[in-house]
Design a protein around this nucleic acid. Structure first.
Lengths: 343, 343
DNA sequence: ATGAAAGCGCTAACAG
DNA sequence: CTGTTAGCGCTTTCAT
C-alpha cells in the first residue's frame, strides 16, 4: 500500500504538518498564531512561512473545544426588514468587526416561542454571548440562559430588570417630549394612534404626561395592536380618525411608518394643513415628505454600536461599570406640526 | 481531597454523564439524539429521561470536530439597511429555519476587500456553505473559496460565470421592460439617472434596447456611481435634470430610493404632472406616494428564500439540477408614468 | 441493537 | 523561549 491512513490529498492540513515543515513543535505553531509575542521573531518567521506554504487554516472546532472559548455571538433579531432593527443590527455588526467574534443571526419575528426555540438551538454552539434587539420576554427563556451563565445584551426598551446588559431608549420620555410639544403648540384635539402594549404603552403614558403638562389630554385613541403596521395602515388610520373625531387637529402615531402613510394620505386628501401629524423613529423619509414630519429621533445605529462595544468590553474581561445605558430621545420638530393659524 | 479533577459544579455535562445515568454507553446516547431510529424505543426513553435530568446539551465543537460536519452557513451581506437586501436575507433565513443550520452574518458594505477579509476570517469555522447577496467580485476570493470546496450561493445579478449556484434577476430585462413602457407611452425626451456600472450598466443597456424598440433613445444621462444613494440625492437629481434637460418628459431612476426622492420633490415643486418618473425595485412606499410610482418589481424575499432552499437541497446531498435560477422581473405600471395629455 | 476503542485537531498545564 | 503530555467531548469504525 502506498498510503498510510487517509489519502494525503483530502486530509486537512493540521498544526502538526506546519510544525514539521517549520521544524518546531505543534504548540509553537499554535502560539505563533494566537500569541505571537511569546515566540522568538526568527521562529515566528519560519512558522509563518510554513503556514503560508502548507495553506494551513486553524480548525475552530478543535481550538474552541480545547480552549473552552467560543468566537460565536448569537444575535436574535425581531425583524430585519424594520429599518431601525436593520440599523441597530448593522451598528452591532460594525462594533464587532475585527474583534474575532462572529455574529450568528436568528429571526424571532417578535415571537416568544420562536425566540425560545432559537435560544435552544443555539446553545450547542456555546455562544460567548446572546444579543437581542429587544427584551427577552419568556421567563423560561430567561432561566434557560441564566443557567448557562452566558453574557446577555438586551436592547431597545428601557426596563427595570434587564437580564444583564442593556442599551435602550426611554419610550416614556419620547412620548412625553411629543406630548409637551403638541400641547405647547396649542393643539387641543389630539389623537393617539398606535400600539398600546409594551413599548407603545410607554410612549402613550409619556404622551399623556406631556399633554397634561400643557393642560390638555388625548381626545381620541385608536389602538393598533395587531400585525406589524405598514404604510397603508397609516392612511387608513387617518381616515378613521377624521371620521370618528372630526374636530381632530393633531395625531401622534406611535410608529413612524403609520405617520408617513398618514402624511402622504393627508397630502393627497388636501388636509395636511389642517391636521398636524407626528411620528416616532425618524426614518430618512420623514424629512423628505411633501410636508416634513415632526418625530422623535431614535439613534438605532448608535444603540447597536454601543451594545456591541459594551459586549466586547465585557467579553474581554474588563468590568463594565454601566451595564445599563439609556440613550436620549430627541424631538425633531418639522413643518407637519407647525402651529396652525386658527389656533 | 474531596474532589477528583475539576469541581463537579463547574464541569460540563457530557454524554458520559448521561450514559451513566441511563445505564448505557456514550455512543447510545449519541445515537439517541442524532439517529433515534437506530435505538430501541425503551432504551431511547431512558436516555431521553437522563438527558432531561442531567440538563445535557451536546457540544457542537466536539461533534463537528469528530464528524467533520458543520452546521454553520456564512452569509455575506452587502448592506442590511437596504430594504431589498434585508428582505432577501430574511427570505434566506426563513428558508433555513428548522434545518439545523445556523446563519452567520458579515457585512461587506459592497467592498471586495472586506468581503475577502471576512471570507478569510470565517474559514476556520469550516462553514458548510457561503452565501452572498451579490456576486463574488475578487478573483483571489473566488479561488480561496474554490480551493476549500465549499458550497457557494450567489444572488442578485445574472452573470454568465457564477461560482456554483445562483438565484438572481436579469437587470437587462428589467431595464428593457421600462424602456419599452416609456417608449410605447409616447415619451420622447427621456433621462436616465443612476448607476452606470455593474447592475446599473445592465439596466441602462436594457433600457436603451427598450427605448430603441419604440424608436427613441436616451436624451440625457446622469451617472451616479458614487456612494449608495439616499432620498435627497433623488430630489437633487430631479432638479439637475430639469435644469440641464428642460424638455425632459420622463426620468428612469435605476434605484428606487432616487425615484422616491424625485417623486416627492416633484410633488413639492408642482412638476409631478409634467415629468414622468419611474423607479426600480418596487418598495412599499412606491404605491403610497402622492403619485404612485411606476417601477420594476423585484421579489427579493423570494430570491432569498429560493436561494436558501436550493442550498439546503444541495447540502442534503441531493443533486440540484438547475443551479442557476433567474427570476422574472415584473413591470408595475402606476400613475407616475401615465400618458400625458400633451403627448 | 449496543458497545469498545480510537481519534478528530487543538491548546492548557506543566516542565525545562 | 520551546517542548511534552494529556484531554477537551464527541462520533466513526469495527465488533458483537
Amino acid at each position: 500500500m502506498a498510503f498510510e491512513g487517509k489519502d494525503e490529498r483530502t486530509r486537512n492540513v493540521r498544526v502538526e504538518d506546519v510544525a514539521r515543515e517549520a521544524g518546531v513543535s505543534p504548540i509553537t505553531v499554535s502560539r505563533t498564531l494566537s500569541n505571537p509575542d511569546l515566540v522568538k521573531p526568527e521562529t515566528r518567521e519560519r512558522v509563518l512561512q510554513a503556514v503560508e506554504k502548507t495553506g494551513y487554516i486553524v480548525n475552530t472546532f478543535a481550538s474552541s473545544l480545547r480552549s473552552g472559548r467560543s468566537s460565536l455571538i448569537a444575535m436574535f433579531v425581531s425583524n430585519i426588514e424594520n429599518q431601525h432593527v436593520a440599523r441597530a443590527t448593522r451598528g452591532c455588526a460594525d462594533a464587532l468587526e475585527n474583534s474575532g467574534f462572529h455574529l450568528m443571526m436568528a429571526h424571532t419575528n417578535y415571537s416568544a416561542r420562536l425566540e425560545a426555540d432559537f435560544v435552544g438551538s443555539v446553545l450547542p454552539l456555546r455562544p460567548a454571548a446572546l444579543v437581542f434587539t429587544g427584551i427577552v420576554q419568556a421567563e423560561t427563556t430567561r432561566s434557560m440562559i441564566r443557567s448557562r451563565g452566558m453574557a446577555v445584551m438586551e436592547m431597545w426598551d428601557h426596563v427595570d430588570d434587564p437580564m444583564d446588559m442593556l442599551v435602550g431608549f426611554s419610550n416614556v420620555e419620547g412620548g412625553r417630549l411629543m406630548g409637551e410639544h403638541l400641547g405647547a403648540s396649542g393643539f387641543r384635539n389630539v389623537a393617539y394612534v398606535g400600539r398600546t402594549n409594551t413599548a407603545g404603552n410607554e410612549r402613550l403614558a409619556g404622551f399623556r404626561e406631556g399633554l397634561a403638562a400643557a393642560g390638555t389630554e388625548i381626545g381620541f385613541l385608536a389602538p393598533m395592536d395587531g400585525h406589524e403596521p405598514v404604510l397603508i395602515d397609516g392612511a387608513q388610520a387617518l381616515r378613521t380618525v377624521m371620521k370618528r373625531f372630526p374636530q381632530c387637529d393633531a395625531i401622534f402615531f406611535s410608529s413612524e411608518i403609520l405617520a408617513v402613510g398618514a402624511s402622504l394620505e393627508a397630502s393627497r386628501l388636501g388636509v395636511i394643513d389642517r391636521i398636524a401629524i407626528a411620528g416616532y423613529g425618524d426614518s430618512p423619509i420623514a424629512e423628505a415628505l411633501p410636508v416634513p414630519l415632526t418625530t422623535v429621533h431614535v439613534s438605532s445605529y448608535e444603540m447597536g454600536f454601543r451594545a456591541g462595544k459594551m459586549l466586547l468590553k465585557h467579553l474581554s474581561g474588563e468590568t463594565v461599570r454601566e451595564k445599563v445605558v439609556i440613550l436620549p430621545n430627541e424631538l425633531r420638530i418639522r413643518r407637519s406640526t407647525a402651529r396652525r393659524s386658527h389656533n
